[in-house]
Design a binder for these strands. Structure first.
Length: 283
DNA sequence: ATTAATGTTCAGAA
DNA sequence: TTTCTGAACATTAA
């Protein structure tokens, strides 16, 4: 379930071990499953990255970006179950790609592991790389979505606020789990129309987004009960212990201690909220 | 033994 | 134009 905090944890985990190292080779492990999507194909990925030095590792919303001295940018999208690892994959049979690394370092390879296989790896040349994403909710300072930008975006959609938060072209970086957590902290009902929010509520929403995601990063993300891990050494995150509403249906709300956490479905995804803290919109 | 649910993204339909 | 639906795939729980 890599969302933004889990992807940021991967990036921080691998960065010190891969920056400056040269790709000796790219290997697709033997695997009878349907191969993951690689653009522009495995052979080109291999020939264009072999011999290149990794210059930077960054996060863009929920993607891992590796940049090479050739100028090429490789975007790894873990989607539902992908992990970027230096060691200790959960299983052998779901290993999808291996980058063998030359030079001194604690680890021989960088791996992409993906149980469901919905993840993608794409290689872009410098001119070609242009993101279709909205502003990153918690990017480097200059790129962090400003309050004015939040307000402008809210004003131009009639969708429920939680549905809008999950739209990466609208604002990038919020996933399903953290959307419920953020709205609970901001005390905004998930079904409220985004266009109806006051400037003050939008301010609270923006602040809740930044504090929830920053805190989750400090805890190295959330490891859910399905046991898909996310840090670079396949260790559990710890933020799942801090969840206030996600997957806590039927439990007492930890904020008001009066409401009972409810679950319902929006845009085919589970939403959790406290009906007392988060007042339902008029219908 | 079916069916529903699980984190994400995107093409295509409404 | 905007918004919604289903599919991609694997695995587990009910």
């Amino acid at each position: 379930m890599p969302e933004l905090p889990e992807v940021e944890t991967m990036v921080r985990g691998i960065r010190p071990h891969v920056v400056g190292r040269r790709v000796a080779d790219v290997v697709r492990p033997r695997c009878r499953r349907k191969p993951i999507l690689i653009q522009p194909g495995f052979r080109q990925l291999r020939s264009r990255t072999r011999g290149c030095v990794i210059t930077t590792v960054e996060r863009l919303a929920k993607r891992v970006l590796l940049k090479f001295d050739s100028g090429d940018v490789m975007a790894i999208e873990p989607r539902m179950t992908g992990l970027v690892l230096l060691a200790d994959p959960p299983t052998k049979e779901h290993l999808r790609l291996e980058w063998l690394l030359n030079g001194k370092g604690d680890y021989e390879s960088l791996w992409f592991w993906d149980r469901r296989g919905l993840g993608t790896v794409r290689l872009y040349d410098p001119q070609q790389f242009a993101s279709r994403l909205g502003p990153d909710v918690i990017g480097p300072d200059a790129l962090t979505c400003s309050l004015d930008e939040w307000e402008e975006r809210c004003g131009r959609t009639q969708r429920a606020i939680k549905v809008a938060l999950l739209d990466q072209k609208w604002i990038a970086g919020v996933g399903n789990l953290y959307a419920s957590e953020i709205l609970h902290v901001a005390r905004i009902h998930p079904e409220r129309c985004a266009g109806d929010l006051s400037r003050n509520q939008i301010r609270k929403l923006r602040e809740a987004t930044q504090t929830v995601l920053a805190t989750a990063i400090r805890y190295e993300g959330s490891t859910l009960s399905d046991g898909t891990y996310r840090n670079a050494l396949n260790r559990n995150g710890r933020y799942q212990n801090e969840h206030r509403v996600y997957a806590r249906e039927g439990q007492r709300c930890p904020a008001c201690r009066r409401g009972t956490i409810r679950r319902f479905v929006q845009a085919q995804r589970s939403t959790f909220c406290c009906p007392i803290c988060q007042r339902a919109p008029r219908r």
